[in-house]
């Protein structure tokens, strides 16, 4: 059940929601969402997995925690949306190609450098086709300005104990597998 999966990952109980709509009203991006947070939780309660994962709601969540702050039942939709993204990613569902590339590079950097490396990121992002030609041109324009300011994507140092990060990652992946069984 999707609700159980969500609550396992996020520690939130979507069933506790009584549908007041405070979250949707407070959400700064609900205007662009397929379903507002309230309806999203409702769909989760009804176990409509397909519709839930198809929606753009959790991808649009800017994690501003407005909903969390207001919720009379102490539920955090922000964390629920992280959980939904986790679930989607595991099933290979991304809202668009850009996000997919962005995520993959980020994770790669985590494991390779232990930090996010802007310089390498920009190169890889463009190389993998994370940006279309039009955006690229505009970005180059912006990039030039930034460059003039000395705001250049820089390469960040690797951390020393990279093996610790790897081991933590492996432990998480292992636990995940055990949970499934």
């Amino acid at each position: 059940m999707i609700a159980e999966e969500v609550s396992k990952i996020s520690g939130e109980n979507p069933f506790a929601c009584f549908q007041c709509g405070d979250c949707t009203g407070s959400c700064p991006v609900s205007f662009a969402m397929d379903y507002g947070p309230r309806r999203m939780i409702h769909l989760i309660q009804l176990n409509l997995e397909e519709e839930v994962l198809k929606a753009n709601t959790h991808w649009l969540c800017a994690s501003c925690y407005n909903c969390t702050y207001r919720c009379p039942r102490n539920i955090s939709f922000t964390r629920i949306s992280y959980a939904l993204r986790n679930i989607s990613v595991k099933r290979g569902i991304y809202p668009n190609k850009t996000t997919k590339i962005f995520y993959e590079i980020f994770l790669d950097h985590m494991l390779k450098y232990g930090r996010f490396n802007e310089g390498i990121f920009v190169r890889e992002f463009v190389a993998k086709g994370g940006k279309g030609l039009k955006e690229l041109l505009r970005d180059i324009n912006l990039g030039l300005k930034l460059w003039k300011k000395g705001k250049i994507p820089k390469d960040v140092d690797k951390i020393d104990k990279l093996d610790q990060i790897k081991k933590i990652y492996e432990a998480c992946v292992k636990e995940e597998k055990e949970d499934k069984q």
Binding site: Q19, C20, G21, D22, T24, G25, S30, G36, R38, R39
Partner: peptide
């Protein structure tokens, strides 16, 4: 006032 009308599903 801002609110979501949950029956109309509109903010």
């Amino acid at each position: 006032l801002t609110l979501e009308d949950t029956l109309e599903q509109k903010v």
